[in-house]
C-alpha cells in the first residue's frame, strides 16, 4: 500500500542493483535516448553476466527510468552509456537501476 496520492507513480517499478564483472562490464545492451526520441530500453542481457545473475534480474524490454537515482529522461543515448560506465568507477562500484518491466 504505497499510495503516492497523485505524485509521480512509482508502482510497477523494480529496483535492480548489480556490480560489474572483472572487466568492468555489466552484460546488457541499451537502446534509445532523448536524441532518438525513444525511452531507454534494455535490448539484450548476456547469459552469465552480472545483469543476468543479479536479483531481481534485469530483463530484455525493461525500460530504464533512473540510473543511480538520476532521472535520465532528458539524457541522450551516449549520456546514458557514460553514466552506466561511470558507475563502475564509482567507489561502491554498484549500478542501481530503477526499471519499468515490459
Amino acid at each position: 500500500g504505497k499510495s503516492m496520492n497523485g505524485a509521480v507513480p512509482h508502482d510497477n517499478l523494480v529496483l535492480i542493483k548489480m556490480r560489474p564483472d572483472e572487466n568492468g562490464r555489466f552484460g546488457f545492451n541499451v537502446k534509445g535516448g532523448a536524441d532518438q526520441r525513444m525511452p531507454i530500453i534494455v535490448s539484450r542481457v548476456a547469459p552469465g553476466t552480472p545483469a543476468d545473475m543479479c536479483m531481481p534480474r534485469l530483463n530484455e524490454g525493461d525500460q530504464v527510468v533512473l540510473i543511480n537515482g538520476r532521472d535520465i529522461s532528458d539524457h541522450t543515448h551516449d549520456d546514458v552509456v557514460m553514466l552506466i560506465k561511470a558507475s563502475c568507477e564509482d567507489q561502491s562500484g554498484e549500478l542501481i537501476l530503477l526499471v519499468r518491466p515490459n
Binding site: R25, F28, N29, V30, K31, Q36, R44, H77, V81, I84
Partner: peptide, 12 residues
C-alpha cells in the same frame, strides 16, 4: 525525414 531503422544499441 525519420530514420526509423536506425537503432543503436550499446553494450555496457
Amino acid at each position: 525525414e525519420e530514420k526509423d531503422e536506425c537503432i543503436i544499441a550499446t553494450e555496457v
